[in-house]
Design a protein around this nucleic acid. Structure first.
Lengths: 109, 109
DNA sequence: TTTCAATACCTTGCAACACAAAGTACCAAA
DNA sequence: TTTGGTACTTTGTGTTGCAAGGTATTGAAA
């Protein structure tokens, strides 16, 4: 069944979304809709209702800031920018991710 | 701060715990307390309040079964056993995990 | 001028889950 | 019979992912 498969993947994505967001934003600024597309392209599908609160949380933690920018068409865009604190967090997440990959590799022999 | 670091790791562990449990049980039967020790040794620390409900969920999904066994000391132990369905799920999780590792590797360049 | 479609941001209500903490039960030795 | 070790279970709380619905801006078509 497809849905079982989807649940497995969806479950695993939990906990690494913040890592993915910071990773993308560490390379370039982006607004929510463009992040959605990048994540989709990276097979880390997320929906609006997940992403917006997550960005707000990261901003409140001081990991991100943002600025408004006119759009060529439609309403203005909220471009998120990673902060120094965010880069620090990203470095920690890199280490944590690496360790987890190794732990699981060990578990799977 | 230590706690920030812990939060990052704790957050990332979410979603792969079920994978770890099935992985351990695919090699040998185990009871909760011994699973706790194995996970701790594998740097995937979990606490009782997390593990017990998780095992019950996986049992209710038909991924695990269990049998009681006398303990040399103390109350009887509930040995969990992976089922065929559980092995199927584990195979899916292997694939999902592999894909996610690759996705994140791509995101991180 | 009004309507429409596209774009973009945000909120609400719900369910799942990890965890801390407290509770229950069994057993053997002191 | 009390104590300590082992083991399983439950309760309450906070966080989070998600579906669904809502608000607002813009430009072009009707």
């Amino acid at each position: 069944m497809e849905s079982t498969n989807d649940n497995v993947r969806s479950q695993m994505r939990k906990g690494v979304l913040e890592y993915c967001i910071l990773s993308i934003l560490s390379r370039k600024e982006a607004y929510a809709s463009s992040l959605l597309e990048e994540l989709k392209a990276a097979n880390m599908l997320v929906v609006e209702g997940t992403l917006y609160p997550l960005l707000i949380r990261q901003k409140n933690q001081g990991l991100l800031s943002y600025r408004w920018e006119e759009s060529p068409q439609g309403p203005p865009r909220k471009y998120y920018v990673i902060t120094e604190k965010g880069r620090g967090q990203l470095a920690e997440m890199d280490a944590a991710w690496q360790e987890m990959v190794e732990s699981i590799q060990a578990l799977r022999h």
